[in-house]
Design a protein around this nucleic acid. Structure first.
Length: 112
RNA sequence: CAAGUGGACUAGAUGAUCGCCCCCGCGUAAUGGGGGGAGGAAAGUCCGAACACCCUUUGUUCUUCAUGGCAAACCAUUAGCGAACAAAGAAGUGGGUGCUGGGUAAUUCCCAGCGGUCCUGCAGUAAUGUAGGGUUAGGGAAAGUGCCACAGAGACUAUACUAGCUUAUAGCUCGUAGCUUUAGGCAAAAGGUGAAAAGUAUGAGGAUGUAUCUCGAGAUGCUACCUCGUUUCCUCCCGGGUGACUGGGAUGGAUGGCAAACCCCACCUGGUGCAAGACCAAACAAUGGUUGGUUGCUUGACCCCUCAAGUAAUCGAGGGGCUAGAUAGAUGAUCAUCUGAAAAAACAGAAUUCGGCUUAUGGUCCACUUGGGCC
RNA sequence: GGGCGGCUAGCUCAAUUGGUUAGAGCGUCUCGGUGACAUCGAGAAGGUCACAAGUUCGAGUCUUGUGCCGCCCA
């Protein structure tokens, strides 16, 4: 799990990133990012019902994504709000594939 | 051995690294230390309750009018039978339940029983009875309405097509007799239709009628009606049972099915739901809505053990235990080893709480049923 | 968390208050027609009425349970 200050929690924060954020994508991952004028980078992870109707599978995907992001936190540039979204193919991927995709995604966004 | 049904138990272990949530009367300048951290279904939301607020009624107590002064502000309301506390839910538009007794906070749930029904065995000529097992939404059809397709003559006010008897009429014929046409009446035992044919069924004997077969007579099958025996249901009487029901007897009687068709009867039911509600702050003249936060939030119809009551569901007493409480939402990720056929081993993620029901599902064990093999 | 609705042919929809063999349009296939195609004409195939159980003589229709899809409430 991410430390609490580095989570995106408020509905309004998500709305702001959705409307004004810069879009990028890689494989089965998508993201939007926006400067937040803080000295930390905050992450929000969105896994919708379309990924799977089973709550257990969605939770598994979210945990793996968070873990992949958490292990890279100290190398990530500070001062952004990032929302990560997923496509349905992620349901069959194991942790190592997700980890590799997250690395490529963050490099593409120039956060890493 | 295989399959099915029912029941009980279980839901990987250990270690390493990196993390998250809650608690601590452990501790610090800070870093830290310790403890706890998803399910049997957490699911579906099909029921029931707790709890909260609102509505109505009643009772008790307190007060005799606090804020504000009728509106420029996003919306609504704003001067009155006021406020607080407690108890109750009358009426039944409507909704729900429906054999009996018990359990429970309560139920459409659970337990035990009664009746029906199905299967197997036994008894009997048969109807039927009886033992075991399964299953059962099971009040009322002599309160009323409605429906019963197709087929069939007729389908609940029964009914006359074929065959039969009979009256009238007209025709053929020499003819009072015979045959035929048309109209009406009688009769429900035969034929054929259907889920059902008019309403208890069945056996024996008599009797009547009829169909088929062969040489007139006989044989076989069905049979109105009568007698006797057994039997279903209704009514009444006497027993048994808390009761649903049931045993015996009597004279009298015979009422088609469908209420998961309308309906009738009996009983239950005020409404909304933690997105309930409460508090703090912001804004407003005030209150509410609104926005942000706190709370409600986990000690509870709780769990475990022993003894007692009860056929059981369940419950009484004693002892012990504390077992998630999040809020973009924790309870994890990766690797290694072990058990294992397989650890990528199923189904699946708490959101106010609890009790049921239903559905999904890996493994182990037990009981029963069916089938096969061996002795 | 709470509330509500739907499911019939490949697609879009019917089925008259339980009744005989579930229909229509589009689409598909075959034949005709054309040098070939379209339009057109003729014909045919295609349904576990979402699934299961029950009530009934009889169920797409009634009852109950299940599954799937969708909508509403901050």
């Amino acid at each position: 799990m991410l430390p609490k200050p580095q989570r995106l929690t408020k509905e309004k924060d998500f709305e702001r990133v959705y409307k004004k954020g810069e879009f990028f994508a890689q494989d089965f991952l998508m993201g939007k990012m926006l400067k937040n004028n803080l000295n930390v980078t905050r992450f929000g992870i969105v896994v919708g019902v379309k990924i799977s109707k089973k709550a257990t599978k969605r939770n598994r995907v979210k945990r793996r994504l968070r873990e992949a992001v958490r292990l890279k936190l100290k190398d990530i540039k500070k001062g952004f709000d990032v929302v990560i979204m997923v496509r349905p193919e992620i349901a069959d991927k194991d942790y190592h594939e997700i980890d590799a995709a997250v690395t490529k995604l963050l490099r593409k966004a120039a956060l890493l």
